[in-house]
Design a protein around this nucleic acid. Structure first.
Lengths: 197, 197, 197, 197
DNA sequence: TATGAATGAGGCTTCATTCAT
DNA sequence: TATGAATGAAGCCTCATTCAT
């Protein structure tokens, strides 16, 4: 139907102006649809936003899951990062909106509120595969490191969006090295921390 | 006079609801002031917001500068992180608003628009003090790593805000270790990258 | 649609209270329309005002043009004056608003800013038809006399509005005689002035 | 005291922006007085306006009265017009405000509401002195002609304000000739009108 | 189904006016 | 007396949302 088209246009609007400043009038106009149609399909502005966030989140997850099959340690990490960056590159609007929703502090889409934590956990878990002593870290520390790494990745992605001349592979490399080093440091610290306690 | 009070209240509103949803009516009410006072002091909603951002930014910078005096390598890094976390802890609203302004992509306060990049640069520079071969990194990589580290710090700070039971010193430790490790990794990668080229 | 109705009501408001004191709230209420409709149709208060002035000006011009066809000298002058007075009588509000816009010195409708001068010129030109030696007048004098006559006509019209018992034909007569006499006097003076120079 | 100064400044503001748009804040600032002083002296914005109009009207009347002493027919008419134009020239602000107040239709200063009619009557009467058969005109006609002449004078004065290169004596001449001719025409018409009736 | 037309509610801003000193 | 500081009331405008066709 026209749903995907509307969602695309809505994404442009949300990415360009933010949720509050994006206007239903403009979205309807850009989508070539009448406003009542928007409401027929999505119930409300929030409904439209939620639908967009959910579709975008689904796209991201699918992509990550697809890269998660193979197993060879560090290569898998690189694949994940590469897929993430690929998503960011191909869905600039989607990434922009998703990023702001995840970091706004005032989640509009309650369902996706803890998506970030989940991703942090997953990523942390993924990384842990290749680092045997990960479990030595106490839970809060692991959680914290996961969030830090996710934050670093988001920030790096945003930086990359403004430096298109840099190759995706380079960014992938950098981030992989960074993440691995962070893990290592966290482990060492975690052990020390345990030792101290 | 009442300016600081008004700014405090405005900070609460901006932090809780975001710039767009915060209403001058409500801010005036919460501050126990009439709306015209808001305009007498700050000219406009944007003026109020800018004033708040500026005051908050000043507070943060002062704090960081105060910690920047001592010299012994790693200790200085820890001091900076500790001050940053202290600021976040004591100015939750301020940090929230500042963080969103810096990361929203649609800066309202144009003056602060590149503040984040500046901080990224400074922090990268600071970290470089204790890591002699930093200069081996090519500019874009250094820039990217700076942003990644800042993003990690922001993310970690936000995580910490929701885990008050964790001691500030612990978070400081973790982040310091993480940052140092990231620097190290970046250097190694930078050298490889140079070698490859 | 409802545009003409809204314009009528707006005209009443502008005529009764002046541009500044007329409120969009009240106009909407009197027109039986919601405020957003006003803005949908006319964009802004100024837009509404401009639309009203333009419609009114168009009405006046059409009426004058319609009377401008016939040729027999003095009769044509009378016809014009008569049409002008007819317009004033039938569009009291319109005339009131137009008059103030033309004479307020701070024109809101920039397009109509020099309309009065234009009318002054036209009327002077029209009157000149029956008075062969008009060209003896030097430009500034002609201009001045044109303005004076227009002012006399406006003033007379306003006086008439408050004396409805006087027949339109009488006022037409008076003003025609007055105008013709003024022209004659201007010519004589113009000649003298030339002579003197 | 400071009253005259305040009135001067208020006059500038009223002339430049009109009654509604002139702000007490600005008037106080320009006058170098605090706002409460304005209210102490004049009670309200309207009070200030009324005071200014009254002072200005008084100035005009005094000037006209001073020129009204001598008697030699047409010369006296010229003297009056000359004084009027002198007033307009020397009190541009005052004249501007007075003119708008007299012609706004919504008199703010009720006392001065009929001042114009009074002037119209006076002028008509003055002109009648040198024109014996004036009384042949029926009252409404005389009234009308008076208003028309006053309107012509006002309009001419405003025109002159924008053409400072024209000498006051010339404008005086023109207007005197015009007025006299108008009187003559009115008489002839009045007689005919009577004859017809 | 699809939409042109309409609106309730609320936002930002400004002004004449007055306390309290 | 003179004023800095304060405000009630109102204005313009816009938006998400819904009738009525």
């Amino acid at each position: 139907m026209r749903e995907p088209l509307i969602l695309d246009v809505a994404g442009q609007a949300f990415a360009a102006a933010g949720y509050e400043r994006a206007s239903m009038d403009r979205i309807a106009e850009l989508a070539g649809v009448s406003k009542p149609m928007l409401y027929a399909y999505f119930d409300s502005k929030e409904g439209l936003y939620v639908a967009y966030i959910e579709r975008t989140g689904r796209d991201l997850m699918e992509r990550l899951r697809a890269a998660d099959s193979g197993a060879p340690h560090a290569a898998r990490l690189r694949a994940l990062i590469c897929q993430f960056l690929g998503f960011v590159e191909e869905h600039r609007d989607g990434w922009t909106v998703l990023y702001h929703e995840l970091n706004a502090g005032r989640p509009i889409v309650s369902v996706v509120a803890d998506l970030r934590a989940q991703i942090a956990g997953e990523i942390a878990g993924m990384l842990a595969v290749g680092t045997p002593s990960w479990n030595g870290l106490e839970p809060p520390a692991a959680d914290a490191v996961g969030h830090a790494i996710v934050g670093a990745g988001e920030s790096l992605a945003n930086w990359w969006l403004q430096h298109p001349e840099v190759a995706r592979d380079d960014v992938t490399e950098w981030f992989a090295a960074l993440a691995q080093a962070a893990i290592g440091a966290a482990e060492r610290h975690g052990l020390e921390s345990s030792a101290r306690t």
